[in-house]
Each structure stands twice: as structure tokens, then as C-alpha cells.
């Protein structure tokens, strides 16, 4: 029972590693790179680091409110849902994230697609 609870979340380090209003990246071997955001209001979000428009690295955009503006063509993406805002249409996958005891955890199965047991 405990082991399932421990394994469910992937500890990716302390919250202090990401300054508010910025994002940092987390490459995943065999899957999409993840961008972890810290908003000015102190919330944390994780999304695939790709704009739905032309795959721009969202981690490099300006973070305002709970959205990020893509650095390539200024699409505004919701950090909560990954949906493009305004008239633009498209969605970036989000990754479940929790903060506990000053550390950031990502939902393991969302980071690493489940592999069938050998």
C-alpha cells in the first residue's frame, strides 16, 4: 500500500529551484520535454514544453497571471489547462503536479508513459 503511494509521484526537487515568474525544463528520455512553471502568485504547473501552434518552447515565454506567452508567435497558453487563449485554438498536454513540504512532485504515469511489465 505504501509503496504504491511513494511510487505514484516523482520528486523533481525543491520549489526554490524555480524563481516566481519563470519556468525550467525537464527533459524526459523517450518522451516530450516538460516545462515546470512557477507563477508570480506562487503556483506551480507542469506542461509539455511545446506550443500547440509551432511547437515553440513555452518554458522560455513570459509568465503572467496563470498563462504563458509563447516566445515564437506570442500565443497565450493557459498553464492550468494547456488551452490556447483568445482566438487561437489548440492545447498543450498538462502534467499533474503537487507541491508538498517545499518539494515539487509530478504524477509519474503522466511523465513516463506506462511500460508493459516484461
Amino acid at each position: 500500500m505504501m509503496s504504491a503511494a511513494v511510487g505514484k509521484w516523482l520528486d523533481i526537487g525543491p520549489t526554490s529551484q524555480i524563481a516566481p515568474g519563470t519556468a525550467r525544463t525537464l527533459p524526459v528520455a523517450g518522451a516530450d520535454e516538460i516545462a515546470v512553471f512557477h507563477t508570480m502568485r506562487g503556483e506551480f504547473y507542469a506542461l509539455v514544453n511545446k506550443c500547440p501552434h509551432k511547437q515553440g518552447p513555452l518554458s522560455q515565454g513570459i509568465v503572467h497571471g496563470d498563462t504563458v506567452s509563447c516566445p515564437l508567435h506570442n500565443w497565450r497558453i493557459s498553464l492550468r489547462t494547456g488551452e490556447a487563449q483568445g482566438d487561437d485554438k489548440g492545447c498543450t498536454p498538462t502534467i499533474d503536479l503537487k507541491v508538498d513540504g517545499g518539494r515539487i512532485y509530478l504524477l509519474r504515469e503522466a511523465v513516463i508513459p506506462p511500460v508493459k511489465a516484461a
Partner: peptide, 13 residues
């Protein structure tokens, strides 16, 4: 921090 990754994930599988 602007130039480095937060961490890297390499699944054991």
C-alpha cells in the same frame, strides 16, 4: 538556472 535543466528523467525501462 536560465541555462540548465531542472533535472532529467531517464526511465529505468
Amino acid at each position: 538556472d536560465l541555462h540548465s535543466h531542472l533535472a532529467e528523467v531517464r526511465p529505468l525501462s
